[in-house]
Write a protein that binds this DNA or RNA. Structure first.
Lengths: 207, 207
DNA sequence: GTCTATAAATTGATAGAC
DNA sequence: GTCTATCAATTTATAGAC
């Protein structure tokens, strides 16, 4: 704040560099979280993958939990962006399908961290992270509205509690079936997504 | 082998005690694996929960991976027992439903370890464990037969690759949706199982 | 086989120079 | 802010007495 007073509109070159480095760190953390989970991911590994020293990383994030939480917040932001970009004129169930499809594509691309275990230290950190919780609530509200609308127009099973549908969509974003099928090598990524998306909405049984 | 020659039919009292202790260790490991996953489970914790010293545990199992693998083998055995006890006169799809139901009830009871991550040291140990692999193949064969029969009689969607159905059933055994719904406290265990089993076979969309 | 005590390795986090 | 070097705590695994 030593130069112009109207700082927030135009970040300095140094600030841009700082933010770009943080984005690189968080992106790497996100990838490793998706690849091996929070417990198996080491801070040394993140730092080495980014190409900086571990102590430098700790100047940006005070703990491993905070680093992982930043990656999860970034994921929530991206999810909100996806929700905002969904075609408004679609049927509600197709909006839900579109979001589920995106999440599955993201998982196949190695960008979808799996859900933290119930008593993980990461989960505790997330439950104390306002930025994460607010975004999670906002996402749940948007999806909840679509779910209710889809049940009202009869396309989504009205007998299911809306919260069960919501949780199912979250869970399918990290469905291990996608990785299993990919490693079997029998289908293309697009076919895998279609398969899992189909079984999610239409079930295993014949229609 | 110092007493009678026909040893295998009648284990001595000491051998029974030994096997009972090992069963207690493996059962505890199974519970902790389900509760916190392989990485977060510590050998100290298993030993303390069983009520023995850690060094004693290492007399039974040479490593943490071997201990966890023993728990997974035990799970495969229990699964084979369930497969063998399924009513033979049921329709194939109802056999599949029965197995899926059992796995979900086991998960709600805290007895179902989640699948190890792709590059986990546990996964590597399992892939080198003949007892585990053989049972996994046998289970897959049995389920695969039922899947093909259910597709042949038209009750299971014939357009789905059988391997996709098989992987889906494995994945639903550790579906995090069950735990989410349980912690929400809105449904009973039986209702949760019915819900998730229903969405698995019938999908989220209306029929 | 079970125990206490300890080794050996990993890893989250920090000190301090530049 | 970034680095090298190191600390401190955890955790897997083992030594050795009984």
């Amino acid at each position: 704040m030593t130069t112009a007073a109207s700082a927030p509109a135009k970040p300095s070159f140094k600030e841009q560099m700082l933010q770009a480095r943080e984005e690189a760190i968080v992106q790497t953390a996100n990838r490793l979280l998706a690849e091996k989970g929070f417990e198996s991911m080491t801070v040394d590994e993140v730092a080495a993958s980014v190409g900086i020293a571990k102590a430098s990383l700790y100047k940006h994030f005070p703990s491993k939990e905070d680093l992982a939480a930043a990656a999860m917040v970034r994921l929530m932001q991206r999810t909100q962006d996806v929700l905002a970009s969904v075609q408004v004129d679609q049927k509600p169930i197709d909006k839900l399908r579109a979001v589920a499809r995106w999440s599955m594509e993201a998982q196949l691309a190695g960008e979808m961290p799996s859900l933290p275990h119930q008593n993980s230290s990461l989960r505790a950190a997330l439950m104390n992270n306002r930025g994460y919780l607010d975004r999670l609530v906002a996402i749940s509200d948007t999806l909840g509205g679509w779910i209710q609308a889809a049940q009202a127009d009869g396309t989504l099973n009205p007998k299911l509690p809306a919260i069960a549908v919501l949780y199912t969509l979250f869970a399918r974003a990290c469905d291990p079936v996608l990785g299993f099928l990919k490693s079997s090598g029998l289908q293309s990524d697009a076919e895998i997504v279609d398969l899992v998306l189909g079984t999610c909405f239409d079930g295993l049984a014949s229609r």
